[in-house]
Design a protein around this nucleic acid. Structure first.
Lengths: 337, 337
DNA sequence: TTGAAAGCGCTACCAG
DNA sequence: CTGGTAGCGCTTTCAA
């Protein structure tokens, strides 16, 4: 690799100082004379000094990195990609790198070289979580952990999915819709979000004496299977279609047109995970917008708090705000908010 | 953080061995008796030993991690997200973690704690590349570096975009299309891919005496702007629409229907960056499929070769295969290929 | 305001 | 097959 790196000892020798002073000067620590500090800085630049992070880590017992684990079953979801990008920014704010883990297929796992980790939608049997527990790694769960027994984590952050879905259903009802149908992932996409959505829909239907029109799909469905599901679910009497999978609402428009439905007129279309490029900002579609980037950012900052010991002993639960972005029609009927 | 970690010295004392033997036993190094190895393993498990990666890194001068830098201008593109996931898998194959960098907004950048890095579509003025050069970090560029002077990297991997686009244009021509139009990103998405696509389209048009029908879009366009661009570009005589931005072809279907176009019959639709969830496998759309996950995977493995010194001194250039997936109509006319 | 010494936990090297 | 020694580059502590 890179040969003959310059170390603080080299700088110290060059300047006739001790390595302590050089280190303090470079890190803005201790009581170093301003002139000395300047000389050290200049020499560091001149000789191309680069701090050795491994040595620093060994001494300080911090790695300056946090980890993110996105389970394989959702890795292809754009939502979590955006989440990851937000987490990177959050990590940067903590002065840390973000390490992406792909330990699912590893046989002899090495220890995690991070100070803590974010785990997306933990399941009880996630081996990664067991490994993290064994290594006593502080963990923040993004999405409520599922399963029995509950995976033990230091903090949870999640969006108020149930409340947002209820808000949407109430909006639709207030705008005159009586037969909302839901297209959701089936149980091979296990997450608190997925189960909250289905449970909430069923509960709301029961409360409002509305028939449950629910169709579930495997995560790996092909486009024509999605289309078939839409066609099967959207019978003529259905007057609102809620799509749980991100960007499915947007993708269903052509199918709905072909079915002779006029979106906005005789059918309201809702995306429960608004896709920024195809759905959010699209006046024909009502979107639940959880802003995954902001979500990832907040998850990272929450992990920062955990690492700083600012959250105390008990597990913390935090909510990440989300909002409903009404379609043009709903705005016309119900107003802007 | 984690208190009172067990070290190999603890294990050595516990077992009455030297720390060398313990270390060798744990790492499968040296000539350690099988029984000894077993005893060490057992004790490690029992006491909850976790290797200290910082100490190991300090000693071996390797971090066991590679970096990935995706420039902010393309961070929201699903393509690069998939690429990142492939890179994670490639890193795992190298027994390394993958670190995501977000150094673009950092003021006082710390040294990179990685052994090498992948940089997506490097630009000449990318400050990250300068930092990497200063730290003598081995770099693989995914996408040919652009600019003058050329950013200096150790290896380049890219897909044969020009060839693939020519193949598509030739296919369309062979299938009877005479007026293909191209919808592309404008220059605020600077990349070798973007410029290759536009230059190749223009060159092909000149060679075949075909009018250039090209419209460019800012990366940050809203859905209605995309729609307007499609409407402006697809005049009645246009008989093929090529969309450079990923998933734009899929999103244009509703617009094209509304324009009265019958996809497959009087218009061929092509996605130059096939989106796996909306375009690839969709019989109405011809896709250039670069398989971003495989691309990321190969980029990581190439970086592995660079790090192992297997590529020699001169910069390496490698191609990542891509393929054209013909629509049902093109397959009917031209065969499966 | 500066410096000397110690040591973080590990692996490389070499001697037994 | 096993162990002793040295030292990776840094920060911490405490003495000057």
């Amino acid at each position: 690799m890179s040969r003959a790196r310059v170390t603080i000892v080299d700088l110290a020798r060059e300047l006739g100082l001790s390595k302590t002073t050089v280190s303090d000067a470079l890190q803005g620590r201790g009581q170093v004379a301003a002139t000395t500090r300047e000389r050290v800085r200049e020499a560091a630049d001149r000789l191309g000094y680069v701090q050795n992070r491994a040595a620093r880590s060994l001494r300080t017992r911090t790695l300056g990195a946090i980890g993110l684990y996105v389970p394989p079953r959702v890795r292809s979801f754009a939502f979590y990609m955006e989440f990851a990008m937000g987490a990177v920014r959050g990590a940067a704010a903590l002065d840390a790198d973000l390490v992406l883990f792909a330990r699912d297929q590893e046989h002899a796992p090495r220890p995690f070289a991070v100070d803590g980790a974010i785990v997306v939608d933990p399941l009880p049997d996630d081996p990664i979580l067991r490994l993290m527990a064994e290594q006593r790694l502080p963990v923040v769960a993004a999405g409520r952990p599922l399963g029995d027994p509950l995976p033990q984590v230091d903090a949870v952050i999640e969006a108020p999915h149930a409340r947002l879905l209820r808000a949407v259903l109430d909006d639709l009802r207030a705008a005159g819709r009586r037969r909302p149908a839901l297209l959701a992932w089936d149980r091979d996409f296990a997450s608190s979000w997925s189960s909250d959505v289905q449970a909430t829909y069923r509960a709301w239907c029961a409360e409002h004496d509305v028939d449950v029109r629910l169709q579930t799909l495997p995560v790996s469905s092909h486009p024509h299977e999605l289309r078939a599901a839409v066609e099967a679910l959207v019978t003529p009497e259905v007057d609102a279609l809620l799509c749980a999978p991100q960007s499915l609402a947007g993708r269903s428009r052509a199918t709905l047109l072909r079915l002779g439905r006029d979106i906005g007129a005789d059918l309201d279309l809702v995306s429960l995970v608004g896709d920024p490029t195809t759905e959010i900002g699209e006046p024909a579609i009502t979107c639940v917008d959880v802003d995954p980037t902001a979500f990832g950012h907040e998850a990272a900052l929450l992990l920062g708090e955990v690492l700083a010991g600012r959250t105390g002993e008990a597990p913390v639960h935090r909510e990440h705000a989300g909002r409903v972005r009404r379609s043009a029609r709903l705005r016309a009927v119900l107003g802007d908010d």
